[in-house]
Design a binder for these strands. Sequence first.
DNA 1: TGTATAAATGAACAACTGTTCATAAGTTTG
DNA 2: CAAACTTATGAACAGTTGTTCATTTATACA
Lengths: 106, 106
Amino acid sequence: MTATPAATVDMGLDIEKMEKVAFILKTTAHPTRIAIVQLLAANDQLSVSDISERLRVEQSLLSHHLSGMKLKGILSSTREGKNIYYALKMREVIDVIQCLAACTFL
Amino acid sequence: MTATPAATVDMGLDIEKMEKVAFILKTTAHPTRIAIVQLLAANDQLSVSDISERLRVEQSLLSHHLSGMKLKGILSSTREGKNIYYALKMREVIDVIQCLAACTFL
DNA sequence: TGTATAAATGAACAACTGTTCATAAGTTTG
DNA sequence: CAAACTTATGAACAGTTGTTCATTTATACA
C-alpha cells in the first residue's frame, strides 16, 4: 500500500471516509466491474452465466473479476446446483454508485 | 484499455457517464491524489513546495503525481518565478469528491 | 459410470503503478 | 557567472492489473 499523506484537509471527507471511498473506487472503477455492480444492484443474485451473457464477457475473465471482488468483500457467492450465484455484499458500493449517478453535471 | 461490456444496465448511470466517472476515479483514487484534489479545491492554486509541505510528501514523488494528473487533464500548471503553481482544471473532479463526501452512510 | 455443463484456477504475459534515487533544467540573486 | 532554490525527468524496480488460454473441479443427469 501507500503512505497516507499527513494533512487532513477536507471538504467533509475525513481520512477514514476517504480511504473507504478510495478502496471502493479502486476495486470498482472498471467498466466490467461497474456493470457487474449495476446488475447485482438490480437483481440481488445472478449466476455467472447470467452475468456472462448479459455483459458479453467471457467466462474465465468474468470469473476472475468476480472472485477478485469476492475476495475484497464486495460480493458474496453461493452454489445452487451447477450454478454459482453472486450477490452484492458490501451495500455501500451501491450507495457510492447511486451517489455518482445522481451527479447531474457530468 | 478494456472492452466495454455490452449491456447498458443502469441506475441512471449510462455508459458514457460511467466511463467518465471511472476515469476520474481511477486517476484520483489514491490517498495522495485525493489529498491533492482537496487542497486544490480549497486553494485554487498552490506551488509544488506548498503542497509538498502540507502533505508531507517528498518532492520527486509529488512531482510525478502532479505531472501525471496534469497529463490526464485533471490539473493545470503555470510557472511564476521559481515556483510552479498547480490548479484544478477538470472541475468535475471536485463535484465527484463532494458528491461522495455528501454520502453520509459511509 | 461417462458425458455434459458451470465455474474456478493457475500460468504466462504485457501493461501500468507507485516509489526511490540520482540527475537535469529553469529561475533568481549575489 | 556561480550558487541556491524549485521543479521535472528518467532509470530502475517491485508490485499490481487485465487478459487469454488450457486445465481442473464440482455438479447433474443419462
